[in-house]
Design a protein around this nucleic acid. Structure first.
Length: 473
RNA sequence: GGCCCGUUCGUCUAUCGGUUAGGACACCAGGUUUUCAACCUGGGAAGAGGGGUUCGACUCCCCUACGGGCUGCCA
């Protein structure tokens, strides 16, 4: 029965409509499809549902591809345009006509609207339009009049969706009307196009938002009408905003690319999104490769999940710490571009890379990493921010001044530097913390920085002495 | 309105009839400390409500409440 017999390779797809950027919910749907297929040696396909010519734009398609690429979700083969396949859709509609599982309906939109109004006036709240043409003799068809092709859906009985996430869902057929599969202008509707495309593309598992759960019943009728194998259904819950309401603009970021611009690393984003609505025991922090090994449709929850930026940040912090220095620097540069911030100079890149081991342990996002890494980015004279300036009082400046000669000939390692600084602190009758504050201010112009030794090691002796001298002046 | 889906700590979730209902994020207290981050220890925190079924329900069934989705010649 099912298209996905055990031995058959898995084929999943992500099928967004190009009417805007890649939504965070769509990103997660794509991620689940990707994880499922990749974890099983299957294929992950991408199809753009652009049959709505009014609302589809090439810019949106580009934005979606860009979003997926940033998230690190690679697809197999070429991107399929649903619109480009319209002839095949029409062909199937006519085949349904030939098989007697569909019929030409000459009712006009105005007539249908009038019917609905009349029914509502009568108190019928859910008017199911029954076309008078369903069983009409073709001889009675008006000549040359425009018509749509409607599916001849079963009037009685029920359609059962065996959903991997939602379980067994039963829909009474009498609540479903004869949906239109081909519009009067000859273009296919979504309901027909998805089924034909999924079938032709060999999709074995349809993993999508649960806003499609009801649609699945109608689509299954098309599979049945064509005698095609029904794919495995998995309707995943939508993502909600922190307030539990449907995610919308007022919740802030809804587009994937905004997350890149906010400085979240893609690996952390993937981890967080994977755990949003899916779980495998106590597994919290993991790579995508690890997730693929254990990802299953059974692990997906049935309730909508809320976005929690605190947890997103925490997860991202782990991934930044786990990343390799060079890769992290590369991704950070991508963030800089996405956030329209100035690119790094060669010197900044060099120093940042050197500082990365200590920086990545204390940052959850790229902006935070940059803030902590200001000492590596800054050039002389270092401009202290308000807090740092406060640490550079007259007394402190004097101490910094007395420090520079002692640094002149010291070997540049933490082992030698540490006793020197401790000694200076002792000589001035202050704790090391009191000395570290002005040092941080002089070296980084900030009050929150990596260890003073780490900073000195990264920028080197000459730059250290120069910055101390600047600050002491 | 009708149909469909959902409901475990504030949040993400584990549990697949028998647990002191576990973990993570967040929060609070303490510790470590060179600021920040991290880290360590401890703490508070949950089965929407009501009926059943059962020796025993978070788990199975029904009702209610609340939330969401669908109800287009949109996808």
């Amino acid at each position: 029965m099912s298209a996905a017999s055990a031995s058959q390779p898995v084929v999943t797809r992500f099928a967004p409509s190009p009417t805007g950027y890649l939504h965070i919910g769509g990103g997660r749907t794509a991620l689940f499809n990707w994880l499922f297929a990749r974890g099983r040696g299957g294929k992950f396909l991408l199809r753009i549902e652009d049959t709505d010519r009014e609302r589809s734009t090439p810019e949106a398609t580009a934005a979606i591809l860009k979003g997926l690429t940033w998230l690190g979700l690679d697809w197999d083969g070429d991107v399929v345009s649903q619109f480009a396949r319209k002839d095949r859709h029409a062909e199937v509609a006519h085949e349904m006509l030939a098989r007697g599982t569909a019929y030409k309906c000459f009712s006009t939109a105005a007539e249908i609207e009038a019917f609905r109004e009349a029914e509502k006036a009568r108190g019928v709240s859910y008017p199911v339009f029954l076309s008078p043409w369903r069983d009409a003799d073709p001889a009675a068809h008006p000549d040359g009049a425009p018509y749509v092709i409607r599916m001849k859906a079963p009037r009685t009985g029920e359609t059962v969706i065996e959903d991997k996430v939602q379980g067994r869902v039963v829909i009474r057929n009498e609540t479903l009307d004869d949906m239109i599969v081909l519009r009067s202008d000859g273009t296919p509707t979504y309901m027909l196009a998805v089924v034909v495309d999924d079938h032709d593309m060999g999709v074995t598992h349809v993993i999508r938002g649960d806003d499609h759960l009801n649609n699945a019943a109608r689509q299954q009728m098309v599979y049945d009408a064509m005698g095609w194998a029904v794919p495995v259904w998995a309707h995943i819950p939508l993502i909600h905003g922190p307030d539990g309401k449907k995610l919308s603009k007022r919740h802030g970021a809804t587009g994937i690319e905004e997350y890149q611009a906010m400085g979240y690393p893609a690996a952390g984003m993937r981890n967080y999104l994977t755990r949003l609505g899916w779980a495998h025991g106590d597994m919290e922090i993991f790579t995508s490769a690890e997730a693929m090994k254990v990802f299953s449709l059974e692990g997906i929850g049935r309730a909508p999940a809320r976005l929690d930026f605190k947890k997103l940040e925490s997860t991202c912090g782990h991934h930044i710490a786990m990343s390799e220095d060079a890769a992290l620097l590369h991704e950070l540069e991508g963030y800089l571009a996405a956030a329209a911030r100035p690119a790094l100079t060669a010197l900044q890149r060099e120093r940042l890379l050197k500082a990365m081991p200590v920086l990545k342990e204390r940052a959850k996002t790229f902006p935070e990493l940059i803030e902590k890494g200001e000492f590596a980015l800054a050039s002389r004279p270092v401009e202290p921010d308000e807090k740092a300036a406060g640490a550079l009082d007259t007394v402190s400046r004097g101490i910094l001044k007395s420090l520079t000669p002692r640094l002149q000939n010291a070997s540049w390692t933490k082992e030698t530097l540490e006793p020197i600084l401790n000694q200076i602190a002792a000589e001035n009758g202050i704790g090391f913390g009191k000395l570290a504050a002005p040092l941080r201010a002089a070296l980084a112009g900030r009050s929150a920085t990596p260890s003073v030794f780490d900073m000195m090691l990264v920028i080197g002796r000459d730059e250290t002495i120069a910055r101390l001298t600047d600050a002491a002046a």
